[in-house]
C-alpha cells in the first residue's frame, strides 16, 4: 500500500520508511507542508502519517485542509506534545489516531493496521484463491459462504504465505514476521500456528504443505 509520511526529522523519517517498507508498503516522504501538499495532490494514498510541528507551519492546518477536501484517506498524527487537550483537538480535526513521540515501532505498526482496517470497507482488498476468500484488513476468511475471524498471528502467517504461493518459507523467517523480538520463542512455536491455520483452511482447496528441512509453503490442492 502507498503511504505518505510528513515528518521533518530526517533520522526518524528514515527509520519509519525503512520499517514500513519491510512490511511491503511504499512510502513517500515529505519533510515540509509544501512538499506534502504537492504529494497528496498528485497521488492517492491509503494512509497519511503526519507530524504536527513542521518547519513551514502547523500540521493541523494540513489536516484541516485535507478534511475540508472531503478526502477519505485516514490520517495518523505523530505528535511530540503530550497535552490531553491537544489530543482531543486532533481527533476533532479529523485525525483517525495519534502517536505521542517517542513511540515504539510495534505500536506504530499496530495502529496503522487498526486504522486501515477501521477505515476501509469490506471487499476492498479481497484475495481469492480456489474456494478461499481472504480479507487481510478485517482478518476474515470465507470458505463456501462461511466466514470466520482469524486471530492476529494466524492472520499474519497467512498474509506471508499467501503473498507468494508455492514458495517455501523457513521457520526462522516466519518467526521473524510473527513475533516481536521481545518474545523469547523457539522456532518450534511456529508449528502451533501452522496447525491452527491448517484447521481454518480445511475445505478451501488451499493447504499448507511442510517441506522437511526447508519450511512451509501454501499450495492449491
Amino acid at each position: 500500500m502507498r503511504f505518505l509520511l510528513v515528518e521533518d526529522n530526517q533520522g526518524l523519517a528514515d527509520a519509519i520508511v525503512a520499517r514500513l517498507e519491510l512490511d511491503g508498503h511504499v512510502i513517500d516522504h515529505a519533510a515540509d507542508l509544501d512538499t506534502a501538499a504537492a504529494f497528496s495532490d498528485s497521488t492517492d494514498y491509503e494512509l497519511i502519517l503526519l507530524d504536527i510541528m513542521l518547519p513551514d507551519g502547523d500540521g493541523r492546518t494540513f489536516l484541516k485542509d485535507h478534511r475540508a477536501r472531503q478526502t477519505e484517506t485516514p490520517v495518523i498524527v505523530l505528535t511530540a506534545r503530550s497535552e490531553v487537550s491537544d489530543r482531543v483537538n486532533l481527533l476533532d480535526l479529523g485525525a483517525d489516531d495519534y502517536l505521542t513521540k517517542p513511540f515504539d515501532f510495534s505500536e506504530l505498526e499496530a495502529r496503522v493496521r487498526a486504522v486501515l482496517r477501521r477505515r476501509r470497507g469490506a471487499a476492498s482488498n479481497h484475495i481469492r484463491l480456489a474456494d478461499l476468500g481472504f480479507d487481510p484488513l478485517s482478518g476474515t476468511l470465507s470458505i463456501a459462504g462461511k466466514t470466520t475471524q482469524l486471530r492476529n498471528k494466524e492472520l499474519r502467517l497467512l498474509e506471508v504465505l499467501i503473498a507468494a504461493p508455492d514458495r517455501n518459507f523457513s521457520k526462522a523467517k516466519l518467526v521473524d514476521r510473527l513475533f516481536s523480538y521481545d518474545d523469547d520463542v523457539s522456532e518450534n512455536a511456529i508449528e502451533v500456528y501452522i496447525g491452527r491455520l491448517r484447521k481454518r483452511l480445511e475445505g478451501s482447496g488451499v493447504a499448507i504443505v511442510t517441506t522437511r528441512g526447508v519450511g512451509y509453503r501454501l499450495t492449491l490442492q
Binding site: N9, G11, L12, D14, I16, A18, R19, L22, P102, F105
Partner: peptide
C-alpha cells in the same frame, strides 16, 4: 529513541 529506532530498523 529516534537513533535507536533507526538502528533497530
Amino acid at each position: 529513541r529516534t537513533p535507536l529506532a533507526t538502528v533497530r530498523t
